[in-house]
């Protein structure tokens, strides 16, 4: 039997047409979620002020705490900002719009790329706010251009890693509400790291957890780069952790994405 196509078949797309269309879509989503947008500015400001003015003096009366805490707040904000990716992805899965995309001749995973890129942009913006507020309240980084570039790279890689993880959580969750719930646990990880207090000050049983969890090398790497201190092997471990998280999330996500086809 011959093809019965009365209508011409859909044309093949340009190399990155699907990706750029989905990125534009997710950026629109981000810009139109006014609450989340406001939160992404307010949260860095409030955390910065709270940690430097309220906790800062108690922890280090000399006023040096701001220099210590900036990387932690960057990560905390990135976590909050990236967590909305889980909700967006889960919403796409449950409304059935992803199934519509899947029945089109596209690399349908491109819709996830859209969410990830939007998250990267949102969270780099939030990072800029943290640093700006930090500078206002006395943050005095001593990094040179190369160190700034390195710190930027580590932050961007961390945002990517946690965004991919949240995207996979969004795929795994049965509803957007459930996605919020699962994501919540991840947001506590920075507190059990060297983000806010040195690991040595923690109870002994907690120290190994804090020492060997992924956030700590990321924090230490950013802090060392910004404050022009020896980085040791922290950058290496930060990169290894982030790449591993991306890899696991992508494999897990791809599996979930395939398995959940047609489940509307």
């Amino acid at each position: 039997m011959t093809a019965t196509a009365l209508a011409p078949a859909r044309p093949r797309l340009g190399a990155l047409t699907a990706e750029s269309t989905f990125i534009a879509r997710s950026m629109r989503h981000s810009l139109r979620d006014v609450e989340a947008l406001l939160m992404s500015v307010m949260l860095p400001v409030m955390l910065m002020l709270m940690f430097t003015w309220i906790f800062g003096n108690a922890i280090d009366p000399s006023g040096g705490y701001v220099d210590y805490v900036v990387p932690g707040i960057i990560l905390l904000c990135a976590g909050f900002g990236a967590s909305s990716t889980a909700v967006s992805v889960s919403r796409d899965m449950t409304t059935g719009i992803i199934d519509r995309f899947r029945t089109m001749p596209l690399r349908s995973g491109a819709v996830l790329t859209g969410h990830v890129v939007a998250s990267l942009v949102r969270n780099l913006f939030a990072t800029a706010v943290v640093i700006a507020v930090g500078l206002l309240v006395g943050f005095r980084p001593s990094a040179g251009p190369l160190e700034w570039l390195g710190a930027f790279g580590v932050v961007a890689l961390y945002i990517l890693a946690i965004t991919y993880l949240f995207a996979a959580i969004g795929l795994a969750a049965s509803t957007p509400e459930a996605a919020v719930g699962y994501g919540f646990i991840l947001l506590f990880l920075p507190y059990v790291s060297s983000a806010f207090v040195p690991v040595e000050t923690m109870p002994e049983w907690l120290q190994p957890i804090a020492e060997y969890q992924p956030i700590t090398p990321v924090i230490e790497a950013i802090r060392a780069l910004l404050m022009d201190q020896p980085v040791g092997d922290n950058v290496l471990w930060a990169v290894v952790w982030c790449v591993a998280i991306v890899a696991v999330s992508v494999v897990w996500g791809a599996w979930l994405f395939r398995r959940k086809a047609g489940r509307r």
């Binding site: 093949r12 797309l13 047409t17 269309t21 989503h29 409304t95 719009i97 089109m104």
Partner: peptide, 27 residues
């Protein structure tokens, strides 16, 4: 083309943006 059981539209976008997006994705 598939119009599924649940309305698979993007609620955050306008109707025009929805159709334009599908048009771009259709070449």
């Amino acid at each position: 083309s598939l119009t599924g059981q649940a309305a698979a539209v993007d609620e955050v976008l306008t109707a025009t943006e929805n159709v334009v997006m599908m048009g771009r994705l259709s070449g």
